[in-house]
């Protein structure tokens, strides 16, 4: 009855393979159900013109990256030089500032009036783009985070790859590093351009 000795071994080896694969996966990377769907609608103020609002429709016609970020987000600061490089390479990046004041653990937004919150947010974003450079072809500001819920945003930075028809093709979670761009994201960006 040799199989009695073989079966536990096979089961054990099966578990080794299962764990070897399973523990390498990042549980923080939740697949987005929005892939293949039109980018959700929102109406948000533009950074350059706070009194006017825009919808994603204004960016249609050419593919773009929708980059969700905030100045309080450390990974976004790390990512920033890479975004500047991508801008130089001709990648169209639309910025989506996420809860600039309310998301900052160091601030208590409840003490601020909506006007004061907006004023402080614009001030902080402006200062950051001045020091780090402005990689964004356009930039919208979502102070409450309500529009971000429609995009399933659960952290910063997140970057959506949106094609010329306005359909979300890919979502990258975490900062875009030169390595990640080279290994994975560049090909996805080129595919978007071919599709347009």
């Amino acid at each position: 009855m040799r199989w009695k000795y073989v079966v536990p071994l096979v089961v054990f080896l099966g578990l080794v393979v299962l764990f070897a694969v399973g523990f390498r996966l990042n549980p923080r990377e939740i697949p987005s159900p929005l892939i293949g769907k039109p980018a959700p609608h929102f109406t948000l103020p533009r950074f350059v013109e706070p009194s006017a609002t825009v919808t994603p429709a204004v960016w249609a016609g050419q593919p773009y990256l929708l980059n969700v970020w905030a100045t309080w987000c450390v990974s976004c600061r790390q990512e920033h030089p890479m975004l500047m490089r991508l801008k130089q390479e001709g990648v169209r990046i639309i910025g989506f500032n996420y809860k600039e004041i309310r998301g900052d653990a160091g601030l208590d937004a409840r003490k601020l009036s909506p006007e004061a919150e907006a004023q402080l947010a614009w001030q902080r974003i402006g200062a950051w783009l001045k020091t780090g450079g402005d990689p964004y072809a356009d930039l919208v500001v979502d102070l409450t985070g309500r529009a971000a819920i429609d995009y399933g945003v659960y952290g910063t930075p997140e970057t959506f790859f949106i094609d010329a028809k306005g359909v979300i093709r890919y979502k990258h979670i975490g900062p875009i590093t030169p390595e990640v761009w080279q290994d994975q994201l560049r090909a996805k960006w080129l595919a978007l351009q071919e599709g347009s």
Binding site: I30, P31, P33, L34, Y151, Y154
Partner: peptide, 8 residues
């Protein structure tokens, strides 16, 4: 919520 964040 499932439409935005998935069945997760």
């Amino acid at each position: 919520l499932v439409a935005r964040y998935g069945e997760f």
